[in-house]
Design a binder for these strands. Structure first.
Lengths: 246, 246
DNA sequence: CGTAGTATTGAAACGGATCAATATCTGTGG
DNA sequence: CCACAGATATTGATCCGTTTCAATACTACG
C-alpha cells in the first residue's frame, strides 16, 4: 500500500518494529513490565528482523528441526508445545506481543511453535542475532532481562501446574489472560483466543476437566461465557480469591 | 591454610574461580553443556565476585527481600523455593555447580534460596554485574546462554510435574541427579543429598507419595537405597524406561 | 542418650483421568 | 446461503492414584 512507509515513520510505537517488554535488572520499584528497548535499539533490531504476517494455526518451527531463527511476537498469540510419546501435548507457554521465543533452544529447537491467532512475528536469523548481541552489550542486556523475565513466568507457571484443583487453575489462567491483554485496567470481559484443548495442555488438565471447571465457574456466578472465547467477569473478588487460594 | 594462594594459581579449573556451564547459542552439534567462559572471563568475574563458603541449610536470601546480589554456585547444591499461603513449599529448582541464581528476580527476590549441602557460592553485587555486562558483550552473551539454558530446564521440569504417577516422577528425578553429578559416566550409585520433603516439593508430590515411590522402586528391583541419601541402581534399563514412559 | 525433626506405613476419601455418548462449532463446497 | 463433515466441546459414569489424616519408626544433632 502506498502509505506504508509514512505510517511506519509516523508511529514509532507501532507494531511495525520489534519491541520487548519486561522487568529491568535494576528497577527498584515497580514490578510492572516496561518497554526495554530504546527507539534506537528497536530500529537496530528492525534492521536484522524480518517482519512476517502469519495466519492462525501456522507452525513456525517444529521440535527437533535445526534452529535457524529467534522470534519476537509483534501481534497475536503464539503457543509453544511439545509432543510426548503418550500423546499428551503440554503447552510450555503462550507468548504475547513483545515476548521472545525460539531463543530457548540451541542447535535444534526443543519444542514446536504455532500461532494461536493471526499474528505478526519478527524473525531474526540466529547467526545475525548472535553477532549483533556480541557487539551491542546494551542490547544483550535487554535480551537477558527478557529471558530472565520469561524464566520467572515459567516458574510461576510451574506452581500453577502443581495445584490439584481444576477451578483454581482455571481462575488463575483467566486472571493472567486478563492482565496480559488489558495491561492494567479491566473491562470485565476476558478474551481467551485459545481452544479448550490448548488451555488443558497449558494447565496440565484433561480437556474435560477444563470444560467442567468453566462450567463450575459459571454455575457459581463468578463469570459467564459469552461464547467459548470470551468470558464476562461477574464477581472479580471471587475470581481473585479462587486464583490465589493456594 | 598456607597453601591457599598457590593452589589457586596452580589450578585454573579449580572451584576457586566462578564458572558457567551451559549450551552455547550456536553450537550445532552436541547438546551436552560445555564451559561457557574463557579463562579471561572467569578471572574478570572473579574480580567482581566474592567467594563464600556456606554451611548446609543456610538461607542465602529470602523471598521479598530487596535483591542485591546474583550468585553462581561453586560447589554443593542450592535449592530455590517459595512459601505458599496453603503451607506448601514448591521447590522451583535445585542448583548445581556453575548454575546462576538470584538473577531471575528484579528489585526484590521472588523466591528463597537455601543451601542443601555445604556449599561454595560466588556472590556478585547486582549493580556491579550490571555495569560489567553493559560493557562486556561477550560475557553478557554467556549469561544469556546460561539463563536460556535454565529456562529450558525449567520447562523440562514443568513437564515432569505434570505427570501423574509418582514412581515415574521419582525415576526421572533420580536419573537427572545421576547425570548432573557424574557428568556423563555412571558408577551405579546415585547421591541424593536433599531430604524427602525437598524432593516432594520439587516433584509436586506429598512427602508420603515420595516415600512410597522409593519403596516401590525398591520392591520392583530397580534400585536399592543404601541409606536415605544414596541409591544403588540395579536395573538401569528399567529406570530409564520408567523415567521416559511419559 | 534423648528429643525434635524427618520418614515410613496404613486406611479412607477426594478429585481428576478416562471412556463413552452426544452436542456444538467451523470452515468448506455445493 | 445452506448443508455437511471433521474438529472441538460438553456431559455423565466409573476407576484409579494421590492426598490427607493418623499412628509409629527412624535418625541426626546437641
Amino acid at each position: 500500500m502506498r502509505h506504508d512507509v509514512d505510517i511506519r515513520r509516523a508511529d514509532p510505537h507501532s507494531h511495525e518494529i520489534p519491541a520487548l517488554r519486561g522487568i529491568p535488572l535494576l528497577d527498584t520499584d515497580s514490578n510492572q513490565p516496561v518497554r526495554l528497548l530504546s527507539t534506537r535499539q528497536r530500529h537496530d533490531l528492525a534492521a536484522i528482523a524480518v517482519r512476517e504476517r502469519v495466519p492462525r494455526r501456522t507452525i513456525l518451527y517444529r521440535e527437533h528441526a535445526p534452529a535457524t531463527s529467534v522470534f519476537i511476537v509483534g501481534q497475536g498469540i503464539v503457543k509453544v508445545f511439545r509432543d510426548l510419546p503418550n500423546g499428551k501435548r503440554p503447552v510450555l507457554a503462550f507468548l504475547f506481543p513483545e515476548d521472545i521465543f525460539g531463543l530457548i533452544e540451541a542447535g535444534h529447537y526443543v519444542s514446536t511453535a504455532q500461532t494461536v491467532t493471526d499474528a505478526v512475528v519478527f524473525r531474526m536469523p540466529l547467526v545475525v542475532l548472535r553477532d549483533t548481541l556480541a557487539f551491542d552489550a546494551e542490547l544483550g542486556l535487554q535480551f537477558l532481562c527478557k529471558v530472565t523475565h520469561q524464566l520467572r513466568e515459567s516458574q510461576r507457571h510451574r506452581i500453577a501446574i502443581e495445584r490439584r484443583d481444576a477451578v483454581g487453575k482455571m481462575a488463575t489462567f483467566l486472571r493472567r489472560l486478563d492482565q496480559r491483554h488489558t495491561h492494567g485496567e479491566r473491562h470485565g470481559v476476558i478474551h481467551m483466543p485459545m481452544t479448550r484443548s490448548d488451555v488443558a495442555g497449558y494447565l496440565g488438565l484433561s480437556l474435560e476437566a477444563v470444560s467442567r471447571a468453566c462450567r463450575r465457574l459459571e454455575r457459581s456466578g463468578v463469570v459467564t461465557f459469552i461464547d467459548r472465547h470470551r468470558a464476562r467477569v461477574l464477581d472479580q473478588r471471587a475470581l481473585d480469591k479462587l486464583a490465589s487460594a493456594y
